[in-house]
Nucleic acid binder design. Structure first.
Length: 799
DNA sequence: GGACATTGTCATATC
DNA sequence: CTGATATGACAATGT
């Protein structure tokens, strides 16, 4: 459990850092300051072994004696301060809050009304929520493995288990101070909650709503705090819902997504993951034919209903599939990535191709539908009869319904469409479709062209940036993947492995987690292997590294800390020197990680080389110090040079010999009358001492280099996996488009009649698409002969 | 007892 | 050139 929390913590911190880098304000202080038990435990960990600060501090101040290194108070204090300062150190990176929901809303050309909602912190909070949630889900599995150990560290004593039920989380969240939430937002959130409950959502999921109302009646001066807590509650609830929808809306469905968007997009900031899920669900790949009926039914309920699972009648409290969630997240993110890129292309092309035709009926329908799907228009505008698919596929599939919808085809509405198709004059030839120019077929009819196009050029930017932030998603996805894939067996396995005190092994920890994670991480068949390997490696690496540090720290803490262990700690301390910024004693501790700054100790004469043996040896030595006279301990601790120096009656410490600058060193030698033998020994001591430190630094650098290379390999593997997934998505989209083109072809061909009103034989004639966008009916014999020069028989250049 | 890891030391190169 | 530092190689020690 300890390692799990360590992992969660690091993941969260990394995520926080990334969020800060992209301008999303992250405020973990509220969580930490208010001692939200589950999250606090996740972040801070229950044990002093988590932080590397305690033992150093003990060593510096008390030299490791007298205070139990596992002291809960010390735990709490140092861990909290450490993390707080770590987060605060991000201040300089903070940028104005980014409204993720705006990114989403602006995505749709037809979405004119953008949702102005809460800003960034929701991401962190959502992330925290997800952590909590996962923690909850895992807690049941972990309790048997020792989750009860956390109870000791619950400061308030109100938690009987390490993993707290969602209600507890909410309860804590209610007490927390969070970012501001306007009164209107709060009210609307309440409304949404009530609707959720009215719609049949599991009461247990929304239990916080009652507290919400309670808190609402709280003191006025606590309004912000209440709002913050409420928002967190709501977010947590949303997270559950989002996971539910994620679980059930897997690209094959997605009916309820517009509802979700309606509420989410309009009212709140969404976590990035939620946004992505919603985006993906809003832009399913060509599934419109499946939802034509279901979507209308799913929207028969209140316009502002927000829970897809509720509207679908799915059990809201259904256990979240631990194996599916990360997959879906990953998958959906990849989908969005691919969609957005496709949309970028589409946007450009649309601007060129939208030139004619305004079918008012289609126009209105499309407008309303799009608005509905994006949930940004007033709820009154939601058309319950709207087919979701028509509005939800701006990239690959959105345009096809208007072209392929049987209703349209059967009416006169098809004619303008086809005419436009034939007249569309794109010069782009998609090689995927051969030389035939089908580009025009894929562009949206100029419905709402005037209004949509005005917003269209703006669209790609936020999403381009979002694309560039894919690493953010990687982190979260990796975290989730690890969370989900981290079974009890794996945890115990890791724990065993880490307890083996194998030191810093780069790869040893990969193997245990990888296989099982692979099972849960792979999403697409083509890229499953690489993806899973990436995820598992990533997670395992981070986990093992941190846990190693924690293990070492625990050991060091018990021993009192010694320099030679630096190599094991260098990853954490070296990479984040500002970790303890603001805490003087911890800063000094942090600096002590440098070999060039040997510590001063009561046994200063022996301090430099006192750490001459391994950890276990020092353990024994510590044991001995409590049982034996100090002189004996000194004898055992001293190095050869120390002993030689004492034997030669060197009048100053080896530390001085080694670390004094040349001038001072020479002065020191000059001050004392030393014989040649002593001088030689002193110089040797200085040389060896410096070389020892140099060797240590050298090894550290070597290790860092190796680790950096390792990280680079992992990054590249991750990129590779991501690109493979994107490729798969593109291929999938292209396949769907091909199918739709084929369908259109068949429909058009079936409607063609010759002079006598008879249909053409498909075996004798075929439609050809001219380079100018025209559609020509040609005999198949000519088709084979002339290939792509169908200019002879322009019988039906229609539509 | 052997394999392995860690650390110190030396020799040498480099700054 | 000297001193400091870096680094490969080896040995000692512990696990």
């Amino acid at each position: 459990m300890l390692y799990l929390k360590k992992y969660f913590t690091e993941g969260l911190i990394q995520f926080t850092i990334l969020l800060s880098l992209i301008g999303v304000r992250v405020d973990l202080d509220t969580y930490l300051n208010n001692q939200l038990p589950p999250l606090r435990e996740i972040i801070l960990g229950p044990s002093s072994a988590y932080t590397q600060t305690q033992f150093h501090n003990l060593r510096n101040t008390l030299d490791g004696y007298g205070i139990h290194p596992k002291s809960v108070d010390l735990d709490h204090f140092f861990a909290t301060r450490r993390l707080l300062n770590q987060v605060r150190s991000l201040d300089h990176l903070r940028l104005p809050s980014t409204e993720l929901s705006a990114w989403l809303v602006h995505r749709d050309p037809e979405t004119v009304v953008s949702a102005t909602s809460q800003s960034g912190p929701s991401i962190a909070l959502d992330n925290g929520g997800s952590l909590e949630d996962v923690n909850n889900s895992e807690a049941s599995a972990m309790r048997g493995a020792g989750g009860a150990t956390e109870t000791t560290y619950s400061p308030s004593g109100e938690d009987s288990l390490g993993a707290v039920a969602p209600e507890d989380i909410q309860e804590q969240a209610d007490r927390e101070t969070s970012d501001d939430l306007s009164k209107e937002d709060i009210d609307l959130i309440d409304i949404l909650w009530r609707q959720d409950i009215d719609l049949g959502a599991g009461r247990e999921v929304f239990n916080y709503s009652s507290r919400q109302k309670d808190s609402k009646a709280g003191k006025p001066n606590e309004e912000n705090e209440e709002a913050g807590g409420r928002e967190e509650n709501w977010r947590n609830g949303l997270y559950l819902q989002a996971v539910q929808s994620l679980t059930h809306v897997d690209g094959e469905t997605g009916e309820s997504i517009p509802e979700e968007l309606t509420s989410l997009g309009a009212q709140t900031s969404l976590s990035l993951q939620e946004c992505l899920r919603l985006l993906e669900a809003t832009f399913p790949f060509g599934e419109e034919s499946e939802f034509q009926n279901s979507s209308s039914t799913s929207q028969l309920t209140a316009p502002t209903e927000e829970t897809p699972s509720t509207s679908q009648g799915l059990p809201i409290q259904a256990p979240i599939s631990q194996s599916d969630t990360p997959l879906d997240l990953e998958q959906q993110w990849q989908d969005i990535m691919s969609i957005m890129e496709l949309q970028d292309m589409e946007v450009n092309n649309t601007a060129v191709n939208v030139t004619t035709n305004n079918d008012s009926n289609n126009n209105n329908a499309s407008t309303t539908e799009s608005a509905t799907s994006f949930g940004v228009l007033p709820s009154s505008l939601i058309n319950q009869d709207v087919s979701l698919h028509q509005a939800s596929l701006p990239s690959c599939s959105q345009d096809f319904p208007t072209l392929f919808n049987p209703e349209l085809d059967s009416t006169e509405g098809q004619r303008p469409t086809l005419v436009r198709l034939s007249s569309s004059n794109s010069s782009n030839i998609n090689s995927t479709f051969g030389t035939t120019n089908l580009t025009g077929l894929f562009y949206t009819p100029p419905l709402n062209s005037s209004t949509n196009l005005s917003t269209t050029p703006v669209l790609p930017d936020p999403f381009t940036s979002l694309l560039e932030e894919s690493m953010l998603d990687e982190i979260s996805l990796l975290d989730l993947a690890m969370e989900e894939g981290f079974s009890q067996a794996q945890a115990s396995q890791l724990e065993d492995e880490l307890d083996s005190d194998s030191g810093l092994s780069l790869d040893s920890s990969h193997s245990p987690a990888s296989p099982s994670n692979s099972e849960t991480s792979c999403s697409s068949a083509a890229s499953s292997s690489s993806t899973s390997a990436t995820f598992s490696e990533e997670g395992a690496v981070g986990y093992s590294t941190d846990s190693e540090a924690a293990t070492v720290e625990a050991e060091e803490g018990a021993v009192g800390g010694c320099q030679p262990e630096y190599s094991k700690l260098c990853r954490m301390s070296y990479q984040d020197p500002s970790q303890f910024h603001g805490i003087p004693q911890l800063e000094s501790v942090n600096h002590n990680h440098t070999y060039n700054l040997p510590l001063a100790s009561p046994y200063s004469e022996h301090s430099q080389l006192s750490a001459s043996s391994s950890k276990k040896g020092r353990d024994k030595q510590i044991q001995q110090t409590k049982l034996q006279p100090p002189q004996d301990f000194i004898d055992r601790q001293t190095s050869r040079d120390e002993r030689r120096a004492r034997a030669m009656d060197i009048p100053f410490s080896n530390e001085k010999i080694i670390n004094l600058p040349v001038e001072e060193f020479n002065e020191l030698l000059a001050k004392h009358n030393l014989n040649e033998e002593q001088l030689s020994l002193i110089r040797d001591i200085r040389r060896r001492g410096k070389n020892k430190m140099a060797a240590q630094n050298c090894r550290k650098r070597k290790l860092d280099t190796i680790l950096n290379l390792e990280q680079g390999v992992q990054d590249m593997r991750r990129d590779k996996a991501r690109l493979l997934k994107e490729r798969m998505e593109f291929i999938k989209c292209i396949r769907q488009m091909k199918q739709k083109v084929q369908n259109l072809y068949q429909e058009v061909f079936a409607q063609l009649r010759d002079e006598e009103g008879r249909p053409y034989s498909a075996s004798e004639y075929s439609l050809q698409y001219g380079p100018d966008g025209s559609v020509l009916l040609m005999p198949r014999s000519m088709t084979t002969e002339q290939g792509h020069k169908p200019e002879k028989k322009q019988k039906d250049k229609k539509k």
